[in-house]
Amino acid sequence: MAYSEKLIDHYENPRNIGSLDKSAEDVGTGLVGAPACGDVMKLQIKVGADGLIEDAKFKTFGCGSAIASSSLVTEWVKGKTIDEAETIKNTDIARHLALPPVKIHCSVLAEDAIKAAIADYRAKATKKDETREAAE
C-alpha cells in the first residue's frame, strides 16, 4: 500500500511513545480497540494546574496507519485544553496523514482514544471533587 510521507514519518519516528502513571490524578488514560480486530491504542494525557494538556504519551498495537494516527494526536493535544482536544475529529487526522479509505478506521480509533483519555481524566477529577466535598 502506498502511504503519504507524513504517515511514513510518524511510523518511522513516532512521537511521544511511552506511558504515564495511570494511577496519578492528573493523568487520563484511554485504551481503545481490540486485539482480535488487529488494533489497540493506549493514549494518555497529563493535565497541568492551568488546565492545559502538558504531556501526552501513546502505545499502539496496529498497522502503520494506526501507529501514525496515534503518534499524530499526541502531538496535536499537547498545549490544548481538554475541551479543545475533544474537538479533534477523525477526518482531520485522516486528511493530515492522507489515509487510504480502508484505513479510515485507524483515525476513528485515534479520536476514540483521545475521548476515552479525557473521559477518564474527568471522571478522576469529579471523584476528587466529591471526595473533597465529603471531607468538608
Binding site: P14, I17, S19, L31, V32, G33, A34, P35, A36, C37, V40, M41, K42, F58, K59, T60, F61, I67, H105, V108, L109
Partner: peptide, 22 residues
C-alpha cells in the same frame, strides 16, 4: 510501543480485559 506487550510484561492477561470490538 505495543500496549499489549506492556500488559503481557506486567502480567496482565489480555483475555481478561473486556475489549470493545469495532
Amino acid at each position: 510501543m505495543s500496549p499489549l506487550w506492556e500488559m503481557a510484561q506486567e502480567g496482565i492477561d489480555i483475555k481478561s480485559i473486556e475489549w470493545a470490538a469495532h
